[in-house]
Structures are given as structure tokens and as C-alpha cells.
Design a protein around this nucleic acid. Structure first.
Lengths: 144, 144
DNA sequence: TTCCGTGCAAAAATTTTGCATCATC
DNA sequence: GATGATGCAAAATTTTTGCACGGAA
């Protein structure tokens, strides 16, 4: 895992490569994603960014996320509930999802699957594993 | 994989168990899901059901899907794009997802992962693997 | 006959778009 | 200075809700 400032450097590099301007808002959206270990929804990202830039607009957050996704800095994930969630962790990793509250955590697995490059006619790129269960918090609540 | 009529019997059984009435609309929504091998969105399910019951309302489809999910007959999945998709295949299976067009297919994997029952503090229930790639159709289009 | 489920319409929530202004390069 | 990004407001889309009626048990 790269450190946050290395990742910001990478962000700057990617923007220059693709001819995107480096604006405070764009940077803020990306930073929020870097800092969050959960997978925030658009609304949550917006609320975070607003703490730094109170005048930021939700539309900008939507547009920025789309942009960041296009240049491969961010991924849209959506495993639970209805709203899209975003992830800035592009390293190979998997997810642990609470079936009760919808919390999503990144995890590492030591086991590997061997997926053929050509599979059901698809040219495969990658895979990810979602493990479903009940998180510690919800387990505690269920006891009471 | 159970046959369709066995699954409808199971549907009837589950409804009786949980005190739900068996209405034509409810049945139709479930049948549409049984028949589709892709993972339709709510809108797509609605369009299908409307062919049988032109007066059905979209609200009913939303409510029915929620109900079916509650009694465990259907699962909400959402791996791509923004809209929730539904799946009536509850057997252990995995997904092959086209990164270009968003098509989602069910697949079987012969390899198994061994996930501990207790994992990162979670009580784990199940896991599923999403394989990402480019589907045959999109591959063909990319050539031209 | 009793409720639960439905349709309809309206409301709420979410996402996208147009356009004038502003800021980065 | 040119071009692309932003904020605002409005539009479009998606999802949820309230209520009266109708149909399954």
C-alpha cells in the first residue's frame, strides 16, 4: 500500500497525463476516498468534502467521481443496498460485508483462485471475493 | 438446480409459512426472475411482468421484490452501474461480469476458498466471487 | 368477512444536465 | 487568454409512501 502523499503524487501524475486540471475540489474528493477505510457513498463523500470546501456542490462530487473512475484512480463498487460506493484502494483486495448494517471492509486473502484468461468466452481481467457475514457491532447488538 | 415448477412450489410453501398471500403479481415477479438468466433491474422485471399483467404498477414490483428478499427467495445484487439487480438463483454460485456492457452471468467454479467461520471479528456466512472481464459480444465489437 | 396486497398518484431521494462564471494551465 | 471545471438551479430518473379499493384466505 502506498502512503497517502505518494498516492497524491500519483493523482497529480495521472491528471497531467490525461490533461485534467488539478483543482482543490478534485483533490479533496480523492483525499476523502484515500482516508476512508470504509466505502463511502456519494453523499458521504460530499459531506466530507464540504467540511473543507463548504461551497462545493454535489454535482461536482458526482462529476469528479466519474472523472476519477475514468482515469482509473477510483472504482465504483456496490454490493449492498442501492447506492453506489467508491473505493480508492486499487490493489488486489477483497471485501467483507456485513449483511445487517451494510458495512464494507477491505480484506486480504492468502488463498488464490486460478481463473483462466479465457473463461466462458470472456477475456478475464480480475476477480474479487465478497465474504458475507455479521460484523462485530451487529453481533453485539443481536445478543442484547 | 431445481426445476421451475419445483421452485414455484417452494415459493408457495414459503409464502404459506410466512403468512403471505399468493397473488398473481407476486407469482409473476418471481417467475420472471426464475426465467431470466441475466440479472434484471427492477425496471426490466416490471416490463416483463407488464406483458402478463398490463395494469401492474411499478410500486408493486418494488414492494414485491422487497418482500421476496425478506423471505429469502430472491437476492439483491449490484456489481456494476447504479441500479440494483435481482437474482433468484440462491444456490452457491459466482458471477462473471462484463466491464464494458455490465452483463452479469452466473458461473460455477470448481475451486473452493476456505473462509474461517470467524474472520476479522465477523461471523461469516458465505462468499461469492465476481470475475471481471470482457464478454464475447463486446470483444467482437472492439475488433471492428 | 377480514386483512393484506394492489394501483394510483404524489412525494422523496438520487443522479444528471445546461449554462454562466471562475480558476488552472 | 483559452479551456476546462465549478456552482447553482432545474430536469430527469429512481425509489418510497399514503390511501382507498379489491381480492385471497
Amino acid at each position: 500500500m502506498l502512503k497517502a502523499d505518494e498516492r497524491l503524487e500519483f493523482f497529480v501524475k495521472r491528471c497531467k497525463e490525461t490533461g485534467l486540471k488539478i483543482t482543490p475540489q478534485r483533490m479533496a474528493v480523492y483525499e476523502v476516498l484515500l482516508k476512508s477505510d470504509n466505502h463511502p457513498t456519494v453523499e458521504e463523500i460530499y459531506e466530507e468534502v464540504k467540511k473543507l470546501y463548504p461551497y462545493v456542490s454535489l454535482a461536482t462530487v458526482y462529476r469528479t467521481l466519474e472523472t476519477l473512475e475514468n482515469i482509473g484512480l477510483v472504482k465504483k463498487v456496490c454490493f449492498w443496498g442501492n447506492s453506489a460506493r467508491y473505493d480508492a484502494n486499487l490493489e488486489e483486495h477483497h471485501h467483507l460485508i456485513c449483511e445487517k448494517c451494510g458495512k464494507i471492509e477491505d480484506i486480504k486473502l492468502d488463498q488464490k483462485l486460478n481463473i483462466p484468461e479465457e473463461f466462458y468466452g470472456y477475456k478475464t481481467e480480475s476477480y474479487s471475493v465478497n465474504v458475507y457475514g455479521i460484523c462485530p457491532d451487529c453481533r453485539a447488538k443481536m445478543q442484547s
